[in-house]
Write a protein that binds this DNA or RNA. Structure first.
Lengths: 210, 210
DNA sequence: AGAAAAGTTTGAATGAATTCAATTTTGCAG
DNA sequence: CTGCAAAATTGAATTCATTCAAACTTTTCT
């Protein structure tokens, strides 16, 4: 039953492979990084690789999942102390997401990762990615609820419904962004802000409570 | 310069390959359908296949594109004569989309098609798919505008912004639906209706115009 | 008609991901 | 310390999408 002694080497191996991947993906690009090379760089055989990841895509999703975790943490600080204006608060949180997202990952990597999380939803890291996506959604909902709690937004609106709507919108806009190499972050932020405007209006408390 | 004489056989060939694919995809599943088999069933060599489609994925996207065109046409009738209530009108249009979507295509096919349209956005049929997605978005915007024109919705709300928001939401919810084999159409429709409710409220004209 | 050009088809060769049976390493009980 | 079962590692073999140079058809021109 003693299985603990095997766990440490496992974690090390995971890290080793992930680092090899990160290096190669940055060096030669996502598609050009052959599994054999990744394995070689991690000083492992291809066979061993498959003990740690379901397939090549799963490896990329593992990297992306780590990235999303950082984004989540960054968002947490915005939710804790949001700007007083609803529109600004949303823009701030969303810009935090978008800006963070391209720090380590290229558009190409995002494209492939998103594609994988859709086409093979049952793979372990795909599940993790889906869970993280859910947490991001929750965070947007939390921001709306927070604005209500702080008295900056109408309390009678369904925070969960509105939060999900906003999140799904920004998520799909991010997909569009990532699909189009000619689209910049400013354009993305502006587009989402425009779409959010009616919702912000809906949430805004006009003047003094009657 | 006479190139017309070549066009008819080309169209025939396209149909032949598409039919072979449809048959095999239904028979053995999306992944298990080997290109060699598809080609064999279409009575063509693999090489010839690549004269007609960029790759295996392109073939699937061609099928999906046809499907989306049908969905668009179905939606057109809803936009032309929508229910008078905003929430109902939205639900009607969206249910039309969702119900139609599973007529010919399995969840697996949708997953793979969506993944492809993200990971290889430059492929010809991927572009076509993206264009069609844009048309669907326009259709949702058109419904909102139509409701305003008919006097069933507040005119001062930005129809385009709200339409895009609604569409992106329903689109991502469809992705969720397609990723989860345990989710049924009723659940999907209900979830989207709940998310849309605040927007419907925002748009609704309450009582008589003051 | 005959020859050259343009377009199509072909299937064997290529290359990369994934599998798997054989081998090596590890943790543990006696 | 030794033997053993479970776990991990290995890389050659398999599978499949994709390419490409050669063969074949059709069109066009004289």
């Amino acid at each position: 039953m003693t299985v603990g002694l095997r766990e440490r080497p496992k974690a090390d191996m995971n890290r080793r492979i992930l680092q090899a991947q990160a290096w190669l993906f940055h060096e030669v690009g996502c598609d050009a990084a052959r599994l054999e090379d990744i394995a070689a760089r991690a000083e492992v055989s291809v066979g061993t690789f498959y003990n740690y990841f379901e397939n090549k895509g799963d490896l990329l999703l593992a990297t992306v999942a780590m990235e999303v975790e950082e984004v989540l943490a960054a968002g947490e600080t915005v939710v804790a102390r949001p700007p007083m204006d609803v529109a600004r608060a949303l823009s701030r949180l969303i810009a935090t997401y978008f800006d963070h997202s391209l720090l380590y990952l290229s558009k190409e990597m995002w494209r492939i990762a998103m594609a994988l999380s859709i086409s093979q939803p049952a793979t372990p890291f795909s599940r993790r990615y889906t869970v993280l996506d859910g947490l991001l959604r929750d965070q947007v909902c939390a921001l709306v609820a927070q604005m209500q709690r702080l008295g900056h937004a109408r309390a009678e609106v369904d925070a969960r419904a509105v939060g999900e709507l906003l999140f799904n919108n920004l998520n799909l806009m991010f997909v569009e962004f990532v699909k189009d190499d000619g689209m910049g972050l400013e354009m993305l932020n502006a587009a989402v802000a425009r779409q959010n405007a009616p919702i912000a209006e809906l949430l805004r408390k006009t003047g003094v409570k009657s």
